[in-house]
Write a protein that binds this DNA or RNA. Structure first.
Lengths: 189, 189, 189, 189
DNA sequence: AATGAATGAGCTTTCATTCAT
DNA sequence: CATGAATGAAAGCTCATTCAT
């Protein structure tokens, strides 16, 4: 990897850490540069402005996240198995990467990311999209708007992981499976 | 209502609106004052500082919200009925007051409000708390940590209302009842 | 004494106390009003603005101070006796009224009071003025500019009292007499 | 000298000038920046906050002042000679640098500098300290508390220079020697 | 390519003063 | 006469962005 890529990566990493730990407020460019071990000006060689830096960071995290989640995914398996697979992997990934989770949370709740969120959920590439559609057709999943089903799946997920990361609700594999089960109960016909 | 109360109210209203619409960033004191039709200094006659203004706003909204939600609540009714009652009222209130919803969302996701959130959820006064405890004892509700059950209830709620307010998922009474039903399925044994 | 005079006096007293204890910075009009038990606006009924309030306070303190100092002063007594009399009384007064001393210090060191200081020292009414003039004529006091002699007298006085008030150099009658003696040595031929 | 040092120096100089001429009140950061020919933000690159700027300014002036005063000082010379040497140099320095004198005056009379003052006067490095101690031991100097002797020396000095700077008492070498003589008479046994 | 010194708009907060009651 | 709510100019300080090196 070139020196260039090193700096770029260092900047992205520093941004992730600072925003995750201290919010957007706690991540001035000067601090990002310092933590990344580069000059402030350097940030602007790799990213047009702070906004672009943040969007780029999101895109890269998203890609990594998706790659992990899709590992071993059987596109043609039974609905319920695929649902469990996806959910388990998401929980696993987010619990293993609390910094990324904190960042994503902030990102989606900020003016930066609301548009991105929608776009993502509605994209055909989104595996849950196909899953739920099929499930509804097969009469396994409740016949509700997809966005509503998304809410039933991701809503609990976000809350529960937040509580885990803040130490209030320590999760383990059993508990995670129980939430997924409950989520399935929610969307299942 | 006195002139005084007018100004205080105007400031709170302006704050609600600006934070709901543009986030904490988009609500500098100068703009709050302008929107409220008062001088900047006036804000500081009614609130020690910006932080107190925001906390006060939260407290007032919270009180109004709770009063609405508890209307006609039968503390000794059947679990399921009480669950529906609370959920329906919360949905109704938040859908009727999108500004308040946006504000509360921001508030709880900010360093301002995380503590408040916990405190609130764990308080004995929180009607859901008693409800879920009873439900678990009676074997009607899944035997999961209360915080986890909260996640299953409020997670979908937040997501779904957010989507409604952004125009992506127009809700109506039928749809709301369907989400509540799904939520019940999630927590029910 | 009328109600009016009461308020005026209360305002002046509060001003003295606050400025002496916390400096000009620590004496906003709102706090003066509060301590005086009057409304803020009331201050402006008795004094054109804050500046006038402070100047008036100075004038009143000055008059009281002078009255005390001149008690029992023999205008035609021997130079040395008159010198001791004046010095002793000034020390006595300022040590007994630390608040006034603190205020006067601040006053003279601020843009408010430099002019007043000069004016006072040069005024014919100033008893030291006549004293030193005579002393010089009689060949008892060094033939130096009066202002310089003032410096030799008041300079040590201010320093020594400041140190006393701050607890670093506790004074007593003996010590005070020794300073006066030293001051006399300084100006004596 | 580098650009950097230029700006730092310009800021310090502007601060000195403004505080000397208009007091702490008359030296807002905006005005300091303007007078220094830099942006406001630049001040904060060199100094953490305004307080640090002022303390630093003091330290630098103090160092320069001390270096000047100690030139040619014979630590083992006769008490009287050393006394004259120190006094003459202090007068010379302060008369040649009226801005610094005004600044130091304000500094010591403000909450910023009272502690510094004490610390300085009591430090073993303070040459007057040793001088007076010795003088007392040898029976040349009056047996009075050192702080009181300091008052007798610095009190007149401050007053007299103040009067000189304000144009009321133009000093020259002869006059200065006469004050020092008078000061010596004050502390001498 | 990389730097970081320099910038100034914009933030929150204070306070002397006014004026309707 | 007396009040204190209302005001806004001005304070100290931060930070995204630029640009000479």
């Amino acid at each position: 990897m070139s020196r260039q890529a090193d700096k770029r990566t260092a900047i992205l990493r520093a941004t992730l850490k600072l925003i995750a730990e201290h919010g957007f407020h706690g991540a001035p460019t000067s601090m990002i540069a310092e933590r990344a071990g580069v000059g402030v000006g350097t940030i602007y060689r790799y990213f047009r402005d702070k906004e672009e830096l943040i969007h780029t960071l999101y895109e890269e995290l998203e890609a990594r996240h998706r790659a992990f989640v899709m590992q071993g995914y059987e596109e043609n398996g039974p609905i319920r198995d695929r649902f469990y697979h996806l959910c388990r992997n998401i929980y696993r990934y987010l619990l293993a990467n609390p910094l990324e989770f904190r960042f994503l949370e902030q990102y989606f709740d900020s003016p930066y990311g609301v548009a991105k969120m929608r776009q993502k959920l509605e994209s055909a590439g989104e595996p849950f999209h196909a899953l739920l559609k099929e499930g509804k057709q097969q009469g396994i999943v409740k016949d509700l708007p997809t966005l509503l089903l998304f809410g039933l799946i991701f809503g609990p997920m976000i809350n529960v992981i937040k509580d885990h990361d803040s130490g209030l609700l320590p999760l383990n594999d059993v508990l995670v499976d129980q939430v997924i089960r409950a989520t399935w109960d929610a969307i299942q016909r």
